[in-house]
Write a protein that binds this DNA or RNA. Structure first.
Length: 573
DNA sequence: GCCGTTTTCGGCCCGACTGTTTTCAGTCG
């Protein structure tokens, strides 16, 4: 078992099992931290194990290193199996329910002999739970609600979808009377590709009407919690939204605190403790009377007070940003305005919705200097892949449009050429030669084993006419798992062959994953941020791609489509 | 179970809300 995710999941589960046993909470957290450390590992696990470097990873000590190694080598872990046997499986299921923790789950199991979620539902429906000591009618009702909620909501949402829901709420919040400051926080602000809920923070000295507005009937499908300064609702779309209201003079600290990540905050707190201050969501508190914290007015000032350069929200994952900021080495991240065009866009000739002209027109409106057209190749029958004749016809049309200077935006001719199962390309060299650029990608035989699919992609990267690789793993977030392709080997092959790797900006792809980019770019990998647009509206997906590039520490210099037209043309020749 | 400029033992974040209590335990973020 070399899949990090599988092993991390087992460690995570061990944490939950220990929690049900009533273990030391810090031991539980050690397992959770270990699982997270494993997920964030940007190297191949088997390599780290082979070189005996697991304990170098922060959060993994001797014990966890041994457990991970055993799991990787044998696929089993006796300690885990023993632990699992000692806990009835229903307890694990129960703590997945909102509002139900280990103590409650155990009590229900012991007193009512609950063996399944349907037992639990039955007991609640029959009013048996309310009769237990320490329980009441409300708890019973909440349990039934939690069972329903779990069925209907997966509690995971694409960043783009969540933002579309959050943005108008933020706008309304800002317009409310008494709201001095308002901001989106949490993983949404950190631009994580998947978020679990929406976090809003408001600075105000009269919270009551704001909380009333937030929790009003028309807004939420249901109210999860409502206090004076903290409230949670479930929106009609199923996503949970939290609001926290703080006094205006505490807004800055709360903004830092609720933006997170949790791990980033813990690192900040321990750093400030070293400087003699205890940090919380309400501010700094001097341990001795002598220390005086400098006044600060914004996040830049906040980080400066800890002798750190400013850390943009996207980087706040405790993956090296604190160390970098201490040395003044936070890079100037790429911005939306740096983008001057894009490749990988489709027209109605294959599976796009809009015509070539409509696409160029929109690119012109966006003030792009260039637009690459890359319809599917002939093997992608399901996507209306172009025959050789059709493709060459399109090339002629584009050339004519360019010559006539019909648009201010220059159009590059290209293709999204299938990498066939054996690694060869879907068009002959003779055809590919006539294009300005060639994107290669996989759309079939996605479930090949690691060796085969990695070799297949590398072969395509070695093809002299290949320009860039699109959606490296073919993953569809929340829908389809990534292929088994070995990402690090592909990064190395792309660098060796001077090929570009795409960040696919489609909100459900965002592939290659941001966790690999920092190191890959350091090694010299060049990126293209592409919208993979299938309609004029989707050209804006390039911005979702920029978000991910920022999370991957990329600068303007790492991204090919920040170059002006002249230089890009030179690069493609 | 992890970690170490308070360093191999003893810390490890803590405040808000809910529901059931009548002063607080459990859950969550």
């Amino acid at each position: 078992m070399t899949d990090k995710q599988e092993i991390a999941q087992i460690l995570e589960e061990m944490g939950s099992l220990l929690e049900l046993k009533g273990e030391n909470p810090f031991r539980i957290r050690a397992y959770q931290n270990g699982a997270r450390a494993l997920l964030n590992l940007d190297e191949e696990l088997s390599k780290v194990i082979e070189e005996d470097r697991l304990t170098d990873v922060e959060g993994i000590g001797d014990h966890l290193a041994k457990s991970i190694t055993t799991l990787a080598k044998t696929g089993r872990l006796p300690e885990y199996e023993k632990l699992k046997k000692s806990i009835p499986p229903i307890l694990l299921e129960m703590i997945e329910l909102q509002g139900l923790g280990p103590k409650t789950a155990k009590a229900l199991y012991q007193k009512l002999k609950i063996k399944s979620i349907s037992d639990l539902k039955k007991a609640a429906t029959e009013g048996k739970i309310a009769k237990l000591k320490g329980f009441g009618a409300k708890t019973e009702k909440n349990i039934l609600k939690a069972i329903e909620d779990q069925k209907t909501h997966q509690n995971q949402y694409l960043w783009f979808d969540a933002m579309e829901i959050a943005a108008p709420i933020l706008k309304e919040l800002k317009e409310l009377k008494g709201v001095k400051q308002a901001e989106i926080c949490g993983s949404l602000r950190r631009k994580m590709e998947i978020v679990g809920d929406l976090d809003f923070l408001v600075g105000s000295d009269e919270p009551k009407p704001i909380m009333d507005w937030f929790t009003s009937k028309k807004r939420g499908a249901s109210i999860i919690a409502k206090g004076a300064t903290k409230g949670s609702i479930r929106l009609h779309s199923g996503i949970q939204a939290d609001l926290r209201i703080v006094p205006t003079d505490q807004f800055l600290y709360a903004l830092i605190y609720f933006t997170g990540s949790k791990e980033h905050n813990i690192a900040l707190r321990s750093l400030s403790l070293k400087k003699g201050f205890s940090l919380s969501e309400y501010g700094f508190e001097a341990k001795d009377k002598k220390s005086v914290m400098p006044k600060m007015k914004d996040e830049k000032g906040f980080y400066r007070s800890l002798s750190l350069s400013y850390i943009p929200p996207e980087l706040r994952e405790n993956l090296g940003e604190i160390e970098a900021a201490a040395k003044g080495k936070i890079p100037k991240l790429i911005e939306e305005g740096d983008i001057r065009g894009s490749f990988h866009n489709h027209t109605a000739e294959s599976d796009g919705r809009n015509s070539l002209q409509q696409m160029i027109h929109e690119a012109e409106r966006l003030k792009w200097e260039y637009l690459g057209i890359s319809d599917h190749s002939k093997s992608s029958v399901q996507a209306g892949g172009l025959s050789e004749e059709k493709l060459l016809e399109q090339v002629e049309i584009i050339k004519k449009i360019n010559r006539a200077k019909q648009f201010k935006t220059h159009v590059f001719t290209g293709t999204e050429c299938d990498i066939l199962p054996n690694g060869s390309l879907d068009y002959s060299d003779e055809i590919l030669k006539q294009l300005d650029f060639v994107i290669v990608s996989i759309h079939s035989s996605l479930r090949q084993d690691e060796k085969t699919i990695t070799k297949r992609i590398i072969k395509a990267l070695e093809h002299p006419l290949t320009t860039m690789l699109a959606h490296l793993t073919s993953r569809l977030l929340l829908k389809r798992a990534p292929s088994l392709a070995n990402i690090n080997k592909i990064i190395d092959a792309a660098i060796a062959n001077k090929k570009i790797v795409e960040i696919n900006g489609s909100p459900m792809r965002l592939d290659m994953d941001w966790r690999y980019w920092r190191k890959a770019a350091e090694k010299g990998l060049l990126c293209s941020i592409n919208p993979d647009a299938h309609s004029v509206e989707q050209l804006q997906f390039v911005n979702t791609g920029v978000n991910i590039a920022r999370k991957g520490w990329l600068t303007k210099a790492d991204v090919i489509n920040t170059l002006p037209l002249k230089e890009v043309s030179k690069f493609l020749n």
